[in-house]
């Protein structure tokens, strides 16, 4: 318990550090945001008012501590353009991104584990090298290239799926984006499943079970898979954090109204509070996931003891 509490305090400090760095980033943005915001026809008074509103006149440290203290009460400031609270905007978009990420996780997990098992069982044979080569290609393809290739094939040549947008819960719209998002992590899951399974299949107790005459599929699915759950689930969950980065690209290609699209639009408009908010939110999710993984690993290890 104490260890968990200490970990949480440490992670809190890490988050504060991340806030510091992101704040530093924003601080060095060249040009006066107030002048940009006020537009062409503003006079000196307007600019001064905006500077006051954004507290641009204060020093770096005052602004940092003000931001942190507001952050603790879950206030990330307001969007410069729409005036809405940043956290509300993010939470409004979050379900869309989570939907995409969960779909991608399911697709990547399912295909990756199946292909990984297949490759491990055919270790060193043609099937193994085909699966490994395909996964290298997957890992090396930038996500926007995958997006466009999928769009070209499925919505242009075969005319099966809509190329972009989101309409309610129509599943046709999220097949392409979630496949694109899943593509890179499929490859990682294939590799980790394959390597771990090969390790387990060489262990003594699997040899014992083999000697006892169990059929191959039972050995794999009942005895061996149990032992690779931890590393495989770890990589799947870690990838879930990486989807947030991938979501930026995927959502901008498929005009999917999620957090990634929000960030792209905010970057285009130099909407600083939103940019800051999304980067921090992404960092927070990543840290929280890491913490969950640690807890989960701890639980599994305890159970096995």
């Amino acid at each position: 318990m104490i260890r968990i509490a200490r970990r949480i305090v440490y992670l809190f400090l890490i988050i504060m550090g991340a806030v510091f760095i992101v704040h530093l980033l924003v601080y060095i943005i060249p040009g006066d945001p107030a002048i940009m915001l006020a537009g062409e026809y503003a006079d000196g008074g307007d600019i001064a008012r905006i500077r006051e509103e954004l507290s641009l006149n204060d020093s770096f440290w005052i602004r940092y501590f003000a931001y942190v203290s507001r952050l603790i009460s879950l206030d990330m400031g307001n969007s410069v353009y729409s005036g809405l609270p940043v956290l509300d905007i993010i939470l409004d978009r979050l379900p869309n991104t989570l939907l995409l990420a969960c779909m991608a996780m399911v697709i990547a997990g399912f295909l990756g584990i199946i292909a990984g098992i297949f490759a491990a069982l055919h270790k060193g044979k043609l099937m193994d090298s085909i699966i490994l080569s395909i996964s290298s290609v997957f890992v090396s393809t930038p996500i926007f290239v995958t997006c466009f290739l999928l769009t070209l094939v499925f919505s242009y040549y075969f005319n099966l799926l809509p190329p972009s947008g989101m309409s309610g819960m129509n599943p046709a719209h999220f097949i392409l984006p979630s496949c694109a998002l899943a593509s890179r992590s499929i490859a990682l899951i294939v590799r980790i499943t394959r390597n771990e399974l090969i390790k387990v299949m060489n262990s003594d107790y699997i040899r014992t079970v083999q000697a006892m005459g169990f059929p191959q599929y039972r050995i794999v699915f009942v005895f061996a898979l149990k032992n690779i759950i931890v590393p495989v689930l770890t990589i799947i969950l870690l990838d879930f954090g990486a989807y947030l980065g991938g979501a930026v690209v995927t959502e901008s290609v498929f005009s999917w109204p999620g957090i990634g699209k929000l960030l792209i639009v905010a970057v285009g408009k130099r909407d600083i509070p939103v940019i800051q908010g999304v980067i921090l939110f992404g960092t927070f999710i990543f840290i929280a996931l890491g913490f969950l993984i640690e807890l989960f690993q701890g639980l599994i290890i305890k159970q096995n003891d």
Partner: peptide, 15 residues
């Protein structure tokens, strides 16, 4: 902890 693409995007905006 900061996702690298997001950090790079933030830097690209601010620099």
């Amino acid at each position: 902890a900061i996702p690298s693409l997001l950090l790079a995007m933030g830097l690209a905006v601010s620099l």
